[in-house]
């Protein structure tokens, strides 16, 4: 990856983070922590990885993205808006009665949302269905799914992985946002889902670990996915991430799972991000 490419990605993700904070604060609710941990991966998918046409969001041959951890909707919405699926101004209407931006992704209201999600464990089954559908239809379509590490406790996730391996869905790339925290505390305390690599391998996937905030590593992991195509196995990327990434007082703090920042807190967070922007531009 060139220096300029990386800079562009970092700035895109930073803008997403600003919008995650601003939109959830304007809404007075939402899930900033898990949106911030997923922001870099989602930024990479929409900036570098996926094939789509924002002006033709239903294009049959587009790659699909399913946000199985649907509560990270503010991150997805920010990416979609900045890629031109809908006006950026819409982001500030998040969770309002007149908005197309539902609290969790809704495919029938928001252009660019490929599957309605929010109930954990379900998005991955739909992603698997899309990957199987692409094979049946002989379409060169990649399906990307993003799960949370708390979500992994849902049995349906493992039913879906079994299916993906059984039907050799090597066009499926499942990423897990391993931020280590969920609503009631540390994932390791609430319900330990580790060792994730061994579990996914045992279910027939090819697994790679990556730092979910390092674009070189994300790129490497997605290249691993492309190398695996025609292997007959689905790919799983375990993204080591920090919940609340980019905002000092939100990082690794359980309390920011499902709580929006108050306006003063949001201003403080945005000031931190502004400093980060300067550093990126200077680099």
């Amino acid at each position: 990856m060139t220096h300029d490419d990386k800079k562009k990605l970092e700035l895109f993700a930073l803008t997403m983070r600003e919008d995650i904070l601003k939109s959830t604060t304007a809404a007075g609710s939402g899930h900033p922590g898990g949106s911030l941990s997923a922001a870099d991966y989602i930024a990479y998918l929409y900036e570098k990885e996926m094939r789509y046409d924002a002006k033709n969001p239903k294009l049959e041959t587009r790659d699909r993205f399913v946000l199985s951890k649907g509560h990270a909707a503010p991150a997805l919405y920010a990416a979609l808006a900045h890629e031109g699926f809908f006006p950026v101004e819409d982001l500030m209407t998040l969770r309002k009665s007149t908005s197309h931006l539902q609290g969790h992704p809704c495919m029938n209201t928001t252009p660019g949302v490929d599957m309605s999600t929010g109930s954990l464990g379900q998005g991955i089954s739909a992603a698997v269905g899309m990957a199987k559908g692409a094979k049946i239809l002989n379409l060169d379509v990649n399906v990307y799914c993003l799960n949370g590490d708390g979500e992994i406790a849902e049995g349906e996730v493992w039913e879906a992985m079994m299916f993906a391996a059984h039907y050799k869905l090597d066009n499926l790339c499942v990423a897990v946002d391993v931020n280590g925290l969920q609503i009631d505390g540390k994932t390791s305390d609430v319900m330990n889902t580790e060792p994730l690599d061994k579990k996914f391998e045992a279910f027939g996937a090819r697994v790679i670990k990556a730092d979910g905030h390092n674009f070189d590593e994300i790129e490497k992991a997605l290249n691993f996915f492309h190398e695996n195509k025609n292997s007959g196995q689905p790919t799983v990327i375990l993204l080591k991430t920090i919940k609340g990434k980019g905002v000092s007082f939100m990082e690794n703090a359980v309390g920011w799972h499902g709580k929006a920042a108050k306006p003063a807190e949001c201003d403080k967070a945005l000031a931190e991000l502004e400093e980060a922007r300067k550093k990126i531009l200077e680099a």
Binding site: V128, G129, M130, A131
Partner: peptide, 24 residues
């Protein structure tokens, strides 16, 4: 065009949802 999902009905419903989004 027929496939068994095994004894995993929750996933079967979700897979059906995904297939339908592909126009099937």
């Amino acid at each position: 065009r027929f496939f068994n999902c095994g004894i995993a009905e929750e996933n079967m419903i979700g897979v059906a949802a995904g297939l339908s989004t592909m126009g099937l």
